[in-house]
């Protein structure tokens, strides 16, 4: 079996994996990183979105072996309940989650969107999140949260 090394949320791991093991199952079932859920099998829903070397990927559509040598950040690596990432905080303030199942992927996609578009319009936010489905919120408050998160992250950059 191939042996891979990955860094997940700042911790290094060395694992022997079946070639067919999906990255999301490596995270959830081998490394205990259950913060990243699985919502579909066709890469439509985006619930499993994580950062792979700084860019979003759908971890259900990446093999663990393809992530060999990569740096992965999941929702658990962004912030903790006591010290949330500005985007997590913005989702809280704007009530941008209900059941919370899509939330990890949605937050990751939102942060990714801001890499290029630090001050996105509503349209840019909606298009930037097209790969992430939510069944609860109707997206209104998610859009608001991303704008708020963008503002707060912009402030953080300015003041740092």
């Amino acid at each position: 079996m191939p042996r891979i090394t990955v860094t997940v949320d700042g911790v290094g791991y060395e694992e022997e994996v079946e070639p067919r093991l999906l990255l999301v199952h490596l995270l959830r079932e081998r490394l205990g990183k259950t913060g990243t859920p699985v919502g579909c099998d066709t890469s439509n829903c985006g619930a499993c979105t994580v950062m792979l070397d700084g860019k979003t990927v759908k971890s259900c559509s990446v093999l663990a072996v393809q992530a060999d040598g990569c740096d992965i950040v999941t929702i658990e690596g962004l912030g903790s309940p006591g010290s949330m990432h500005p985007m997590q905080r913005a989702f809280h303030e704007e009530h941008a989650l209900q059941c919370g199942y899509c939330t990890p992927g949605m937050v990751m996609a939102a942060i990714d969107l801001l890499r290029d578009t630090p001050d996105p319009s509503e349209e840019a936010i909606r298009e930037g999140l097209e790969g992430n489905l939510c069944r609860c919120t109707g997206y209104c408050n998610i859009v608001r949260a991303v704008r708020r998160g963008a503002q707060e992250m912009g402030q953080a950059v300015k003041s740092s």
Binding site: K55, T56, V57, K58, S61, D112, G128, E130, G131, N132
Partner: peptide, 9 residues
């Protein structure tokens, strides 16, 4: 094509 995360891969 697809969405941002898919375009990354």
């Amino acid at each position: 094509v697809a969405d941002p995360a898919v375009r990354h891969r």
